[in-house]
Write a protein that binds this DNA or RNA. Structure first.
Length: 190
DNA sequence: CAGTGGATGCTCT
DNA sequence: GAGCATCCACTGT
C-alpha cells in the first residue's frame, strides 16, 4: 500500500484558479483528523471580496507571505475559517476550505461538534474548523508538515462550479468549486 | 424546505 | 460604528 503524494509548497505556488479545483478530492488531515475536500472557494487579491484586496493588515498578513501556509481568521466573531495561501509570495491570494467528507477521526469530530449527523460534521467553513480543532493558533503554520497533511487526489473527480457563498461584493464570479453530487457540500450547486 | 433573526468579537473606517 | 468569506434555532408552509 502506497499513500498518495503529500502536497508540497510548489503545488500552492500557482494561480488560485488552478489550485482550487485540484484540491477537490484531496485529503486534508489536521493531527490525523479530517477527510476528503469536497468544496473550496478561490480568493484572488484583485477580487473585492478578498481580505487582501485593500492591502496588508495585521489580520491578513499571512496572505502576503509565501504559498503553502495556513491563513486562519475569525468569522462573525464566533467561527474560524481555514484558507490555503497560494500563488507566488506577495500575490496575497488564497483558497478557502468550505467542506470535507469526514473519513479520519470521526468520533473525535462528533465530540467537538456536539452532533452525530455525518452530513453536518464538516459541511461549512466554520463547521470543518470546529471538527478538526483548527483555531487562530494555527494561523501561519506550514501546510506540508505536521500538524497538517494534505494528500493529492488519487483520481480526477467531476468538478462542479458556481458562485461563492455569503458575499455581498463580487458575488457573481464562479470561483466556487465542488465535488459533483457530494452529500457533504455546505450547499448544493445549481 | 424557505425565510428570518440573534449570537458574538474583531477589523477597519 | 458598520460590516462581516457563519451557524443555529425557530417560524411558516
Amino acid at each position: 500500500m502506497s499513500n498518495p503524494p503529500r502536497l508540497q509548497r510548489d503545488f500552492f505556488a500557482r494561480s488560485v484558479h488552478a489550485v482550487a479545483p485540484e484540491l477537490i478530492g484531496a485529503r486534508l488531515l489536521f493531527r490525523g483528523v479530517g477527510g476528503t475536500i469536497v468544496e473550496v472557494e478561490a480568493y484572488h487579491h484583485t477580487d473585492p471580496a478578498a481580505h487582501s484586496f485593500r492591502g496588508r493588515t495585521p489580520r491578513n498578513a499571512v496572505m502576503f507571505g509565501p504559498p503553502g501556509f495556513a491563513y486562519v481568521y475569525r468569522s462573525y466573531g464566533i467561527h474560524w475559517c481555514l484558507n490555503l495561501v497560494c500563488e507566488p509570495q506577495g500575490s496575497a491570494s488564497a483558497v478557502l476550505l468550505r467542506a470535507i467528507e469526514p473519513t479520519h477521526g470521526i468520533a473525535l469530530m462528533r465530540r467537538r461538534r456536539g452532533i452525530s449527523d455525518m452530513r453536518l460534521l464538516c459541511s461549512g467553513p466554520g463547521r470543518l474548523c470546529q471538527a478538526l480543532g483548527i483555531t487562530g493558533t494555527e494561523n501561519g503554520l506550514p501546510l506540508d508538515r505536521f500538524p497538517f497533511a494534505i494528500e493529492a487526489a488519487t483520481a480526477a473527480p467531476k468538478i462542479a462550479v458556481g458562485t461563492r457563498i455569503g458575499l455581498t461584493r463580487a458575488a457573481d464570479v464562479p470561483w466556487r468549486y465542488g465535488l459533483e453530487d457530494s452529500r457533504y457540500l455546505s450547499r448544493p450547486f445549481r
